[in-house]
Amino acid sequence: MEARGDDEVSAGQHIQTSNVNAGLSESRDDRSNENTDVDEDGFSKHSTTLTNKQRGNEVTVRPATLDSLSIHQLAAQGEVSQVAAHLSKDSSLLSKQDERGFTPLMWAAAYGEKAMVDFLLEKGADPKTIARERESALTLASSGGYVDIVESLLRHGVDINTYDWNGGTPLLYAVRGNHIKCVEALLAKGADMTIESDSGYSPMALAVALGHKKIQKVLEDHILKLYKPTPT
């Protein structure tokens, strides 16, 4: 299975999506004096996690068989043939949402399963689906640093500036995770750098608060490119 982000992201890691923590959920006053209190694990105490147990990877005396896993878990593990078998029996599973509103495509995007993402999109999965707290496949892929999936989703016409429950956009999540390639890909496709989280953090402000200097440079270069005078 493919499970590589553009930084050190592992497939077994908890996926923090609606959880881009203090960087997006603390108040403007709280961040006025101290930038170092921005937690790099997420935006707030509220988190949306996809765990190994949920994926069916929990080590037990009797390991789960593929037949016992849901289509969401199979998608997260990149089991294309198993997912295909499920869909051949019930095509409605393609758009089935779990208790959080996550589709199989969203699970695959969250865990960097590019082959699965491509398969589901080819089968007609809707990449624009929004979960209960406004998470999207693009948000999940950006949060995990999976630039190949980000680029694939963007080619399918998703909203590049979609926001979740606390105002987190794909660009903000990519900045938070220090995922340079994702930031570059999103900016290249027109991601809005002026959108702020509910707490008032812009992508640049968040990069500064977290000390992500390479991300700052990417953002600065993009601004200069946007506003560079056209030669006459």
Rank of each mutant, 00 (worst) to 15 (best):
Ser27Ala: 12
Asp29Pro: 01
Asp29Asn: 13
Asp30Gln: 15
Arg31Lys: 14
Ser32Glu: 15
Asn33Pro: 02
Asn33Gln: 15
Asn33Trp: 13
Glu34Gly: 05
Thr36Phe: 13
Asp37Gly: 09
Asp39Gln: 10
Glu40His: 11
Gly42Tyr: 07
Phe43Lys: 10
Phe43Ile: 11
Ser44Asp: 14
Thr48Gly: 12
Thr49Leu: 05
Thr51Arg: 06
Thr51Asn: 04
Asn52Phe: 00
Lys53Phe: 09
Gln54Ala: 08
Gln54Leu: 06
Arg55Cys: 05
Gly56Thr: 06
Gly56Cys: 04
Val59Leu: 15
Val59Gln: 15
Thr60Met: 14
Val61Thr: 15
Arg62Tyr: 09
Ala64Asp: 06
Thr65Met: 06
Thr65Asn: 06
Leu66Asn: 12
Asp67Cys: 03
Ser68His: 09
Ser68Ala: 14
Ser70Glu: 02
Ser70Arg: 02
His72Ser: 02
His72Cys: 01
His72Ala: 01
Gln73Ile: 00
Gln73Glu: 08
Leu74Lys: 15
Leu74Glu: 02
Ala75Gly: 01
Gln77Ser: 00
Gln77Pro: 00
Gln77Arg: 12
Gln77Met: 03
Gly78Thr: 01
Glu79Cys: 05
Val80Thr: 07
Val80His: 02
Gln82Ser: 13
Val83Trp: 05
Val83Pro: 05
Ala84Lys: 15
His86Tyr: 14
Leu87Ile: 09
Leu87Lys: 09
Lys89Ala: 14
Ser91Cys: 10
Ser92Asn: 12
Leu93Pro: 04
Leu94Gln: 08
Leu94Asp: 07
Leu94Met: 08
Leu94Gly: 08
Ser95Ile: 09
Ser95Asn: 13
Ser95Val: 10
Gln97Val: 09
Gln97Cys: 07
Gln97Pro: 03
Arg100Cys: 04
Arg100Lys: 13
Gly101Ile: 12
Gly101Asp: 08
Phe102Trp: 11
Thr103Arg: 07
Thr103Pro: 10
Thr103Ala: 08
Thr103Val: 06
Thr103Gly: 09
Pro104Arg: 02
Leu105Met: 04
Leu105Thr: 04
Met106Tyr: 05
Met106Val: 03
Trp107Thr: 00
Ala108Gly: 01
Ala109Trp: 03
Ala110Asn: 01
Ala110Pro: 01
Tyr111Trp: 00
Tyr111Gly: 00
Glu113Cys: 04
Ala115Phe: 00
Ala115Asp: 07
Met116Glu: 00
Val117Tyr: 02
Leu121His: 05
Glu122Trp: 04
Glu122Ala: 12
